[in-house]
């Protein structure tokens, strides 16, 4: 009954509003239009500020620290923040490999860590650190070999048997297994992974995979999720055309 009364009252209010709106003078209508326009402009400006702040928060790409695939001097950069246990990251990894391979040197892919502890406790961070140990022992190429093989072998969603898989990958990609195990046990890349995580959050990341496409002029396009090849390709093309 109360809902019915509420609805009746709402409908009466709407009817009243409609009749009074119809009676507005042209001057009043223009005033309302100007107000709406001002509000819209303010909202657009606010959004722009937020976008600029997020873009500013993105840590600059460093050839010494970051893992880069494709032409290191490419005009467009795609910074991916990824979690080794996320099934969508696994899917997106294949998409980005294809995109970089077909970009004719116009795109570089930068991989950063964004392990979601709430969804993939302990394992995602450990795997991120393991990939850094691969870099320590085998350089940038070893990182990509590690990442490619990891996504090929593992089931995602925190179901990876890390005690078996990590040494197996180290062996397969030609790393010194003993030193790899010692590096992993030392936990020396925990801070490195945490810095990546914090930067992903600062740039607006709320889930994985979280990517930021950066044009040569510095314009950024934030991309959330494992989006299809066609969508990412068109965004990269858009970034290429930015002056």
């Amino acid at each position: 009954m109360r809902v019915a009364a509420l609805l009746r009252a709402s409908m009466a209010a709407l009817a009243l509003f409609a009749s009074s709106a119809a009676a507005q003078t042209d001057a009043d209508a223009a005033l309302v239009e100007r107000y709406v326009e001002r509000q819209r402009a303010a909202a657009a400006q606010r959004e722009q500020h937020e976008a600029d702040a997020r873009a500013g928060a993105l840590r600059p790409v460093s050839k010494a620290r970051d893992h880069i695939r494709g032409n290191p001097d490419a005009p467009v950069t795609l910074v991916e923040h990824s979690d080794f246990e996320c099934p969508f990251c696994k899917r997106f990894h294949t998409t980005l490999k294809q995109l970089v391979d077909q970009s004719n040197g116009k795109l570089r892919w930068v991989y950063r860590h964004f392990p979601l502890e709430e969804l993939h406790p302990a394992k995602a961070r450990k795997e991120a650190a393991a990939s850094e140990c691969a870099v320590e022992l085998g350089g940038n190429d070893a990182f990509w070999k590690f990442a490619d093989r990891f996504f090929e072998l593992t089931p995602s969603n925190n179901k990876t048997d890390i005690d078996t898989v990590l040494p197996r990958i180290a062996r397969e990609i030609g790393l010194d297994e003993t030193r790899f195990a010692a590096c992993l046990a030392s936990d020396r890349y925990a801070r490195h992974v945490e810095e990546d995580y914090q930067n992903a959050v600062a740039t607006g990341g709320r889930g994985t995979p979280w990517s930021v496409i950066v044009s040569k002029s510095g314009k950024t396009y934030p991309l959330s999720g494992a989006q299809p090849y066609a969508a990412v390709k068109q965004l990269v093309d858009l970034a290429l055309e930015e002056k």
Binding site: D83, C86, P87, F88, C89, L116, E118, L119, V201, G205, R206, G207, T208, P209, S224, G225, A226
Partner: peptide, 18 residues
Amino acid sequence: ACGSLVLGAAAPFAGALA
């Protein structure tokens, strides 16, 4: 999607959701 909302508005419920 992986974690969408988990790190967003519903952050206090992240553990419960997961």
